[in-house]
Write a protein that binds this DNA or RNA. Structure first.
Lengths: 167, 167
DNA sequence: CTAAACTTTCAATAGTTTTTGAAAGTTTCC
DNA sequence: GGAAACTTTCAAAAACTATTGAAAGTTTAG
C-alpha cells in the first residue's frame, strides 16, 4: 500500500474510532493528522490536508486543546501557531477517559444519588425502582472507580491487568 | 422524593448514559422504562409513558431487540406483544460491549492491519506513520482482548479486577 | 372468508449538529 | 500609528438524525 492511501485510510479509521470515543468526526481527523505528522502543523496546513474551512479548523483545534490532547507550539521566528498531538496513545486514552468521566459519569452518579432516596410506598413499582437504582448506582460507582484507577495509571497497568485476567 | 419524579429523573439520566454507550436517546429511554417496570410493557404503554409516536416506538424497540438487550414476551390470552428488558446490568454491559466491539473495534482493526504494510520509503513521514500504526494496532488489539474477556466474564470478574488493582 | 387487532413501513417533517466564509478582532512589526 | 499577519466569531447554510402518523401489511378469531 502506498503512503498517501495509507494516510487517507488511517485518518478515516481514526476519525471513526475517535467518534465512538466521544470526539466528533473532524476533531478526530485533525487529531489523526497530527498523530502521523512528524512535525507540528499550522491551521493553514490542517485546513488544506483535510479540506475544511478555517472556522471549522479553528473550532475543532480549540476543542482538542480543551480536551487536553493537542498542544500549541510556538516555533521561534514564526508568527503562526503550530499544533502537535500527544503521541502516546495510553496518555491519550487516559485523557479521554478523564474527560468522559467528568462529562458523563459524574452527572449520572449525581442523579442516582438523588433518586436513591425515593419514598418507598411498598408498591411493586417503587420496589422495582429502588432495586434498579441500587444496581445502577453500584455499577456506576464501580465503573467510576475503575476509570479513576485507569486515569491515574501507567501503561503497564493495562498490560498487567490483561496478563492477570488472561492467565 | 416522590415516585413519579424519581422515575422521570431516572429515565432521563439513563437516557443520557445509554446515549454515551452508543444507543440513541429514545432507545435508551425505552430501555430505562422497561428496566424499572415490574412487568413487561406493550408498545401502546411505551408510547403513552414516553409520549412518542407508534412508529418511533416500534423502530426503537426493534433496535433494542437487535442489540439483544430487550426481549419479546407473549402473554397467554393476549394478542399484543409485550417487551421486557434484561435487568442484570452486568449482562447488559456485556451485551453492549459485544455489540460495540463488533460495530466499532473490528472495522478499525481491519483497517489497521491493512495499513500496517504500507511501503516504507525511508522518509520521515512514512516512518512516523508506521510507528503510529504499530502503536494504534497494539492498543486496539489489547482493548479488543480486554473487551473479549469482559464479554465472556461473570460479574465477579469486574469485582476481582477492581480488588486486584486497588490493592 | 372477513373484520378486528395489531405491527411495520416510509415519505414527509422537525430537530440537531456541523460546516462555511466573511467580517471582526488581535497581535506583531516597522 | 497603521498595515500586515494571523486568529476568532458567528449567522446562515448544509448535512445529518430522529420523529411523526397515516397507510399498508400481517395475524388471529370467529
Amino acid at each position: 500500500m502506498k503512503y498517501a492511501e495509507a494516510k487517507e485510510e488511517l485518518i478515516q479509521a481514526w476519525g471513526n474510532l475517535g467518534y465512538s470515543w466521544g470526539l466528533n468526526k473532524t476533531m478526530a481527523q485533525i487529531h489523526a493528522l497530527l498523530m502521523i505528522s512528524p512535525k507540528p502543523l499550522s491551521t493553514e496546513e490542517i485546513m488544506l490536508e483535510l479540506s475544511i474551512s478555517r472556522g471549522n479548523a479553528n473550532m475543532n483545534i480549540r476543542a482538542l486543546l480543551d480536551w487536553g490532547i493537542v498542544s500549541r507550539i510556538l516555533v521561534p521566528g514564526e508568527r503562526k501557531e503550530f499544533f502537535k498531538s500527544e503521541k502516546d496513545i495510553w496518555a491519550l486514552a487516559r485523557q479521554v477517559a478523564k474527560e468522559r468521566r467528568k462529562r458523563e459519569l459524574e452527572p449520572i452518579l449525581k442523579v442516582l444519588r438523588e433518586v436513591n432516596d425515593v419514598q418507598s410506598d411498598g408498591s411493586e413499582d417503587t420496589k422495582e425502582l429502588k432495586r434498579v437504582v441500587k444496581d445502577l448506582k453500584n455499577f456506576a460507582e464501580k465503573s467510576d472507580g475503575l476509570l479513576e484507577t485507569f486515569i491515574k495509571s501507567e501503561e503497564s497497568w493495562f498490560r498487567n491487568v490483561l496478563l492477570k485476567i488472561m492467565k
